[in-house]
Nucleic acid binder design. Structure first.
Length: 584
RNA sequence: GCACCCGUAGCUCAAUUGGAUAGAGUAUUCGGCUACGAACCGAAAGGUUGCAGGUUCGAUUCCUGCCGGGUGCGCCA
């Protein structure tokens, strides 16, 4: 007996087949299988209700018919019952739970099983995307953290993932920066903290070039020289990009992020002529007040709110480069899916962009990838307002991560003073940064996110420390028993028996469902919620059932559960971008 | 003015997209370490899901109208 990885879709197919044998084929019956409240079962099928309503049948009788026709293997694996107006409830029998746990016995095997979802597909994920010559601040956190988790989930489910950092590395601000740089650059400061110095020079340049001033004309001239390939200005611009990327990478290293490409706006600067030409010749774009714009007549708002793709002065803007970017990703990377992770305020822009891309690609007969704008809400302080430092300044990402590590270090030292300092520092890095990442991922990304040190570093509740603690406790059992968790002695293990063993096993089997829903909706919080529930089931099991007991059969049975919990927790946390620990 | 997001227990959040008695954590009150990490576990209590209608076997979810908060709407990205 062996169950497929994704039990819910297995049940879905079985129910569909059963429905076909009782004459429902081709009549739009859908089983609607989902994870159930434990009070009712492990999985439930709701499809009989909707179908019976539409066909004016008795839903309960219909459900009974379908259940009767189910394949014998399904009846062998599940206790099946009808409830209420026509719910079909499925509860996995212990032997079936055991079979599943035996099969999925490592991170590699879990991944191999999950890889069917996006096998053979290429997905480009555009996230983080800071502006060069500027510090990364707290506003950049969510895109980086959510984007990386999405990359990992897509890769885990079989996709070839291309991580593309769409840098803001082009535009009018560089004229002012070069203007400031040429007058006031401090070589020592530039060597010590280049971004800090570039920000200072930009502010000076900006202040020195007010609207209508001759200084502003000079700054514009610097920009034109840059755009025309002036060697000195191009060299400066290149230097700005290089030092910026080096600084960004220090942040990315701490967050476990490594981009495949840094194709910023500058990369698309020379690829916009084609956009103007093709959108004009397909009739999508039109001249309006000297600019080139796209209207969408079928849209209530975009029929009058234009999508401006070329400014009246002939210059490109981010609509033009984003259109070129979509084409490049579709053609050069052969993307099946494109995900752009930015805050919700850019919703209008991407809605217009995607509408335009769909019409443009259709008109030219280009293959259209799936297009997803993954949005998220603002990060606020506990007062509900934008997160700021005490004196009202912007919180830098580096400072935020430093503080997370310091707070975590104080906690680890308080709880585990006997560990050597180097290990406590290492633990603090994983716990502190992990707490920041997890707090961001654990809540539905569409709402605003209230930033609270105390909540994210709490050791109970849906937090990184709670999950990392569960991992550390499992590893501790193996360590104390002198066992290698990579090779658990579980050959003589048997099916789960106690209430806590069964509850834990049931939760483990639902991992596939959690990955599926989090990935298909590009919402990592579904995975977080699952991992929290799994860790809770493990803690309940841990408190009730001692693992290292004399009875070899009981011991093997419980070690198997410990081991499978360990791999699922670690796999899940790695998918979220967190590092897991041996001790904490 | 038009549009989008949010509004759920005192607080911070879930609710698998229309399913069963709306769930967790926290705070409060009890109980549990001579068992592998008590950084834990168990229990109690806490709700007119912003308000008012509507759709149907069933609504936190969909529709309409209000009320609050946030955000966006031609040459920044």
């Amino acid at each position: 007996m062996s169950l497929p990885f994704h039990v819910a879709s297995h049940l879905d197919s079985a129910l569909q087949a059963a429905a076909n044998t009782v004459g429902l084929a081709g009549r739009g019956f859908s089983p609607e299988v989902r994870v159930a409240d434990p009070a009712h079962g492990d999985f439930q099928a709701n499809g009989a209700l909707a179908f019976a309503k539409r066909e004016k049948q008795n839903p309960r009788a219909l459900a009974q018919q379908i259940v009767d026709a189910l394949d014998a293997s399904v009846k062998a694996d599940f206790d099946i019952s009808l409830a209420g107006p026509g719910f079909i409830n499925f509860r996995l029998k212990p032997a079936a739970l055991f079979a599943w746990l035996q099969t999925y016995d490592s991170e590699e095997h879990l991944q191999a099983a999950a890889a069917a979802a996006h096998a053979g597909q290429t997905w480009v994920v555009d996230y983080s995307s800071p502006n060069t010559a500027k510090q990364m601040h707290v506003g950049h956190l969510r895109s980086a953290v959510i984007g990386e988790a999405i990359c990992r989930m897509l890769a885990f489910t079989g996709a070839r993932v291309i991580r593309d950092n769409h840098l803001g590395d082009w535009g009018t601000q560089f004229g002012k920066l070069i203007y400031g740089y040429k007058r006031w650059a401090d070589p020592a400061a530039l060597a010590a903290d280049p971004i800090e110095e570039l920000e200072r020079l930009y502010k000076l340049g900006h202040a020195a070039t007010p609207d209508g001033s001759p200084e502003l004309e000079e700054a514009r001239a610097e920009l034109v020289k840059l755009q025309n390939g002036d060697p000195a200005n191009v060299a400066l611009w290149t230097k700005f990009s290089e030092v910026s990327l080096a600084a960004f990478q220090q942040i990315y290293d701490r967050l476990g992020i490594k981009f495949d490409h840094n194709l910023g706006e500058s990369f698309y600067n020379d690829k916009v002529e084609r956009i103007y030409r093709e959108l004009t010749e397909t009739g999508l774009a039109q001249e309006s007040e000297g600019a080139l714009v796209v209207f969408h007549p079928e849209h209530p708002r975009f029929k009058t709110q234009p999508f401006l793709i070329r400014k009246a002065d002939g210059a490109s803007n981010y609509a033009s480069t984003d259109l070129a970017t979509a084409a490049y990703r579709a053609e050069h990377f052969k993307a099946d899916g494109i995900v752009v992770v930015t805050d919700f305020r850019q919703g209008d822009h991407f809605e217009q962009l995607f509408l335009t891309v769909k019409k443009w690609f259709a008109a030219k007969n280009y293959r259209l990838p799936e297009l997803h704008h993954v949005t998220f809400g603002a990060v606020t302080g506990e007062d509900g307002k934008a997160l700021k430092t005490r004196d009202g300044g912007t919180i830098r990402l580096k400072a935020l991560l430093d503080e997370a590590e310091e707070r975590a270090f104080a906690l680890v030292t308080e709880k585990n003073a006997e560990l050597p300092e180097t290990e406590r520092r290492d633990i603090a890095r994983a716990v502190g940064v992990g707490a920041v990442q997890y707090a961001d991922l654990a809540q539905n990304r569409s709402s605003n996110y209230v930033f609270s040190w105390d909540k994210m570093l709490a050791l109970d509740g849906n937090t990184a420390p709670y999950l990392l603690y569960a991992v550390a406790r499992i590893r501790s059992i193996f360590r104390k028993a002198g066992l290698d968790p990579a090779h658990p002695p579980v050959a003589s293990a048997s099916a789960p028996e106690t209430a806590q063993e069964l509850a834990l096993a049931r939760k483990l089997v639902q991992f596939s469902d959690a990955v599926q829903i989090a990935t298909s909706q590009l919402r990592p919080h579904f995975l977080c919620l699952y991992l929290f529930e799994l860790a809770g089931a493990y803690s309940g099991f841990y408190a009730a059932d001692k693992v290292i007991v004399d009875d070899p059969a009981v011991r093997a049975r419980r070690l198997l559960l410990c081991h499978r919990t360990l791999i699922v927790l670690e796999t899940g946390l790695h998918l979220l971008g967190l590092r897991t620990l041996e001790r904490m």
